[in-house]
Design a protein around this nucleic acid. Structure first.
Lengths: 222, 222, 222, 222
DNA sequence: TATGAATGAGGATTCATTCAT
DNA sequence: TATGAATGAATCCTCATTCAT
């Protein structure tokens, strides 16, 4: 009889069973997050359609609500997830040795390369710049995101402060300068999202990006 | 003198009457545009609610459609209106005399001051950066806006080219450098739109803005 | 001085003045009716747009309401106006001499020719057939129109009754037969309004129309 | 026997479950179609209100859109549904044996009886006559409907051609005559939709209908 | 009297969220 | 647990009618 037959033969311990189930659940969560990222980043928060997210994730619409409380929470999770990955790698890159200029260049290169390979991830930076578009994000969402942002600037500020200390860079407010650098880098990258802006560029984005960094560094040299 | 004009009565010429009506209509159009700007810029295109626009303008919902064909057209008009005013003043400021550095500073100061006094107007620059959000705008709209953008860069490029020619600035691609400068200025200003970004700044925006310009100029000096 | 100058020289009696004004008003009324007919007959009552009617009539929208109380009343007037003209001519044609068959043919030919030259007028017959489309006509409208319809059938019934009396036609209920004839004629004509129906016809409408009349007459001959 | 089936319990196979759900869905679809037919046929396409359709079907407004893409599609489905049923039965009736006259009478009787029992279904014939009212139907819709129309005429033309061949009917263009017959039958039936037309009739519709068919047949006899 | 600007009720459509199975 | 059908609030847009000038 069906009810007595072991569903399949392997003798699985109860703990094993639980673990598998948890893994499966985690995998589905990931799948949903990926689908959501694609849709959110393409259409923006308001215009994004959960029907499409569900379809891309290969689950029913109702299932989304078993993993995330609302559209807003799903969005937040997408942003947080992407940011976490980015931050870790940026830390690694920044912590190497060399002159401040070299390290700034290295981080910049990492930033650019990372963008080349993970354009979608960078939408998080767009999102924080443009929270006004979104308009109705639940309170608390941005706090989470802004933390990531602060940490990135902090990394740059650390390098710059060291450069100043070593007299490699001229005297300045390290954090402020880091903020400017970060702003410039982001702004240039975001240029790519606009057909108009792209059409106004007369050199490759990479060239423009590197030239901007060089300009910055030349401006900072003691 | 105005006071001697016929106080009132039937002696108003028909032309006068027509003029008054046209004025009134124009005034209402302005009122709608202002209300629309407020709502669009606060909530973004998608989330903006025409009901609120109508209410703020003190007119019925249907009235909006006597002045603008659709939500999209209303948005476009808001953007175009703002841009035109800005461009004219920027031209005036840039065309004065002085060293390239001075002129860059002057334009930058104009830019910043104009923003201080007309924050809303600057949304047009945001709009062009984020055309992807808007998406459904009628074709040809962005051409109009992107022209403004190009003209602004052109103004800066003209000054920079002159500076290079006079050996005030080091050799460089004037247009590319202008594009970077323009990008930086815009990005810093737009910082203000984000509570997150604002909270990360440790000096006033004005200080940050001026320091960024100085950094840029120092990087460019021969 | 302007106030004493006769607006224009002709010494017009007050009565003359009144008459002219009345004529002008009547002319405008006609113009509105014509514009309304065009629009109503093309789009149907529901879909017809008074903006377009006003524009075609060359008057302001508000003016329509000085001549007609509502959209519905305007529609009624259009129908009544067209019907009156048609009925008068049909009477004339029917009242000639000849055999019943000849007179039936004559009226049929008149009907067809009148349709050829005044297709729009015939919408009135469509309207009465399809009052359900319109749905919300004010009560009383159709009574007026149905009277015309009845009179047309009456004319045909008169001819047929005479034909029966003279043993030209076989015994039958004259009114009933007239109703059938009238229905057939209208239905064939209305065929033209439908692209589908038109495409199904394999001879000209005129041929089909005449053949149907012949079929009817052959069926009626004693 | 149904009564011996497991009363209920957890022993329902998944397939059974799926089937039930599909059935329920189908039932709801039918319910919506019925509600829609009622409203569309009473008020016409333009004036019909989907709020009322939803209410009559006992569902929320949004639910309509789970079953039909738009008001127009819902309308089309209503028409198509009705037409398909009719066509099948007409075929059956026409394919019996007997003289051409008998078969024409038989089809006519079927037509009339079918109308008596399914008045709403006949709106499809009205729809094709009045496609101009509808206007905004998605392309390709009318093709579907017009095909039905053509097939009905074809059936009649087949009978008539046979009658001519057997010298039961006089020489004529079978298709043209069929078209006339079809037009007459429809026009008479549609008479019922108009209170005006109904009030003008002095015999029952059935009598008028039969008399018209007789008149037609007498006109066709060799 | 004629105008045309203003009105606002009404209607189609979308989509985040709920919940019975 | 996963499903997906059902929901209904929300929103853009239309247009007959009114009314101040």
């Amino acid at each position: 009889m069906k009810t007595t037959a072991p569903p399949n033969g392997d003798s699985i311990s109860p703990g094993e069973n639980v673990r598998r189930r948890a893994e499966k659940k985690q995998a589905l969560r990931q799948k949903i997050l990926e689908a959501a990222r694609e849709v959110f980043f393409r259409d923006g928060f308001m215009a994004a359609n959960l029907d499409e997210v569900a379809q891309k994730a290969g689950v029913a619409k109702g299932t989304l609500y078993r993993y995330f409380e609302s559209k807003a929470e799903l969005y937040v999770e997408v942003l947080a997830h992407n940011g976490e990955i980015f931050k870790l790698r940026m830390y690694e890159t920044a912590s190497g040795s060399g002159s401040a200029s070299d390290r700034i260049r290295r981080v910049s290169t990492f930033y650019f390369d990372h963008w080349v390979r993970n354009r979608d991830y960078f939408q998080i930076f767009w999102a924080i710049e443009n929270q006004s578009v979104i308009g109705e994000l639940p309170p608390g969402v941005l706090g989470q995101v802004s933390e990531l942002w602060a940490e990135c600037i902090e990394i740059l500020a650390g390098i710059i402060a060291e450069g100043i200390e070593r007299n490699e860079f001229r005297e300045a407010d390290a954090w402020e300068v880091a903020n400017i650098l970060w702003t410039v880098a982001n702004a240039l990258i975001q240029t790519e999202k606009s057909a108009t802006r792209r059409s106004l560029r007369r050199v490759s984005l990479e060239t423009a990006f590197n030239d901007a960094i060089s300009l910055f560094l030349r401006g900072m040299l003691a």
